[in-house]
Amino acid sequence: MARDTNSTSTEFYRKKNKEEMKYQLVTFAAMIVFTLVSFGLVIGEFHPMFTIPVIILLACVQVAFQLYYFMHMNHKGHGLPALFLYSGVFVAILTILAMVTIVWW
């Protein structure tokens, strides 16, 4: 591939990276807000039936942000990483589901 120094393309990618960095900051802000909401719900002692699903949902959304923006899964060429990560998540969900439902005593 182009190993030569092409100043216009360098400029282009520089700008693109900068653009992306803005999204990263937004992502970060969102993550902080989610975390604050989660802690707030628990400290505010809302009903557990409300709090627990909401904080788990917030955690999942936060992790999705982390994966797609911080770990660049929104970029091209991440099809296989996504496939394998979701396969892992599938096995993970099965495992946790089994552990909370059918650990017989």
Binding site: A98, M99, I102, V103, W104, W105
Partner: peptide, 12 residues
Amino acid sequence: GNHVIWEHLFWI
């Protein structure tokens, strides 16, 4: 503790 945890992990 709980024995069944081992059984699950082992067979998973």
